[in-house]
Design a protein around this nucleic acid. Structure first.
Lengths: 366, 366
DNA sequence: CCAGTGCATGTTTACGTAAACATTACGAGC
DNA sequence: GCTCGTAATGTTTACGTAAACATGCACTGG
């Protein structure tokens, strides 16, 4: 590249006009520093075999030209993008968001970027489309945050060589899965209420097509049955506070109901409002336990006892899992299967002994 | 690439063992289809000048080999990545999340992917670091979702040719900014309370280092002053429900306070709890207005009157703005400046006329 | 004093794609 | 019948990087 040419136009200007130049290349840096581009490459990657003096010269040239490695060329050469893809439905649920955030943070620490692949409408076609677009996406591996049942038929179109880890799902036999210990959390919630002396516990469940909702409901049922209690009819919501409110209006009618386990905090919020409107006091008349421990849960009326999920840990494990798959080229020694992240029951003010209860084994509340 | 070679190892196997092959290249497809790789390229990009018959053959070969274009090579050749970068702090605020989601969706519709660039600790160094890492990131343009004052000194390290649009900030003179009409929203909230007959309106503000909080507070102050009312002392929170609760305990002491405008819904939630605990009824004793209209706001106790923000529109406009910058190579005709997205006051049950108020001009509440 | 050794640096090449240019083939027009 | 034009396809090359290989130079030891 000359410094000027015949038509009076400064060199490079025309190119910049045609297509904005991204920046200086290795060749430019090499030229300025008076070395070969290979030496620039070595400096750029921190490789040995370069004199300190040369290194300084090259770095000075880099600074002067504002050199930044071209990631496309680098990816092409190295065969990897240092980028993880995250497929997710709408970021409307708190859990997905927190998980995503943790994934992005963990990935950044490992030198990986995160590309978001939103699936607008959760239909099978959309999911398949996302998986197939993946093949031409600049991504080394994929983490799927998807709680509903659409993963099955999508397997086929997975491009080869792209590893997958799934958060918040089952399918542990076909994919590596990282998930909150839904069963343990739900069991803790129900046992807490039973220990306080409640005869039984109602359940305000999440939508039918959600794996998480399904497992929380199953665990609720099992725990009650194992304790020799008869499970009341299951009440279903759709995760939203509004659905919790509607369900709550019905639950308030049940005079024998003294304890409710809501499958998430938003529905618990709606439930609290319905109970309040109907004059059922919480926790004096009815105890309520939520799930998730969203930041606002401590400010509900009353502050909500709930099952805390460790989303950052879920995200971290997803990244760890997927990177370990990338890094060992051969068979994955951990194999498929599910990694469970434990939950923690956070006691606040929405649970108490039933008025007429005997309270055997109940922990005193502060 | 032959079908077998001398040592009995099937061709390609050794390569796959050394480094997992990403997939077939154009050359492989071309070989199978019996055409040149250029023809494959034409088919791949939907260019004219290919017989239907040839096109069919090529597509068949693509299917058979599971061919996916290599995006690194494509990006290198074309000089663009078809990817937008989004720089953001922790995704803990609902607004950022909703905006991000809208950005991802809009970008996807335009054929662009979105890469997340989380900035862990919001220090100047971190922001500068994020901007500088950007240069080697596979990104054509950047959208910054950042409400605090750290953008100023970061300008220098912006790599050339990378366009920026900023959401939720000011700096409209140096960057293109898309933002919610904070001033209009706050004014509507305050006027609504004044119209109901309240003498004045207290303000529960967000943190000092937030542009949005600052502008909402300014608009609150201006609106009161313009209406000839004396603004009460400003109460400050940090966006969290917990801080709203603490502030609410203090506000509950003010016997002359009949109306509060909270700078977001989370703080309003904490405020509601504090007022309830102190026996101040909402809306009979004190009216409360929030800001954001988070989904749960309709399920608060009582359902919250609040200022609705159109986050999807903000995200859409960010993408539109940044893509228009990319697409017109020369000067941006829209120039820098700020695009405001209007808000909408959503009336629910947390506001009413003051008990002793005259209520002139007040709209009747349902 | 010269082969040998090791280190700093340069040269060649390939990664996969697509623009630019080159080459065919086939039919229309004179 | 021969040229010209056009459409279909092939060949060359460049994008920026980094691995593999090549060179050259200084110092070491016999």
């Amino acid at each position: 590249m000359g410094t000027a040419d015949g038509d009076g136009t400064p060199a490079g200007t025309r190119r910049r006009a045609a297509r904005p130049r991204r920046g200086a290349s290795m060749a430019d840096v090499a030229h300025l520093a008076g070395v070969s581009s290979q030496t620039v490459s070595r400096v750029s990657n921190g490789f040995p075999g370069v004199t300190d003096e040369t290194r300084q010269q090259v770095m000075a040239a880099m600074r002067e030209l504002g050199y930044r490695p071209n990631s496309a060329a680098r990816a092409l050469k190295r065969g990897e993008f240092r980028t993880l893809g995250v497929i997710t439905f709408s970021l409307s649920t708190m859990g997905n968001i927190r998980t995503l955030e943790a994934i992005a943070t963990s990935a950044a620490q490992q030198g990986y970027a995160v590309t978001l692949l939103p699936v607008a409408v959760p239909t099978q076609d959309e999911v398949n489309g996302a998986f197939s677009r993946l093949g031409e996406l600049a991504v080394d591996a994929v983490i799927v945050i998807m709680e509903i049942h659409l993963l099955d038929a999508a397997t086929v179109s997975l491009p080869p060589g792209v590893q997958v880890v799934v958060a918040d799902s089952d399918a542990g036999d076909r994919y590596t899965v990282v998930d909150t210990d839904q069963v343990g959390g739900a069991r803790d919630a129900v046992r807490h209420l039973l220990n306080l002396g409640h005869d039984t516990v109602w359940h305000l469940a999440g939508p039918e097509d959600s794996f998480a909702a399904q497992r929380r409901a199953n665990a609720w049922h099992t725990t009650l049955t194992e304790a020799g209690r008869r499970p009341p009819p299951l009440v279903r919501g759709d995760w939203s506070a509004e659905s919790g409110y509607r369900a709550g209006l019905r639950i308030a009618e049940q005079q024998d109901c003294t304890a409710v386990f809501a499958a998430n905090d938003q529905m618990a919020l709606g439930l609290l409002r319905a109970l309040h409107e109907r004059g059922r006091r919480v926790p004096e008349d009815i105890s309520v336990v939520g799930f998730d421990d969203i930041p606002e849960a401590a400010s509900f009326l009353p502050p909500l006892t709930t099952v805390h999920q460790d989303f950052p840990e879920v995200g971290r494990l997803c990244v760890e899992g997927v990177l370990s798959k990338i890094r060992r080229p051969g068979q994955d020694p951990t194999g498929h299967g599910t990694t469970l992240v434990p939950t923690r029951l956070v006691l606040r003010d929405s649970t108490a002994r039933p008025r007429g209860g005997d309270g055997q084994g109940a922990r005193p509340r502060s």
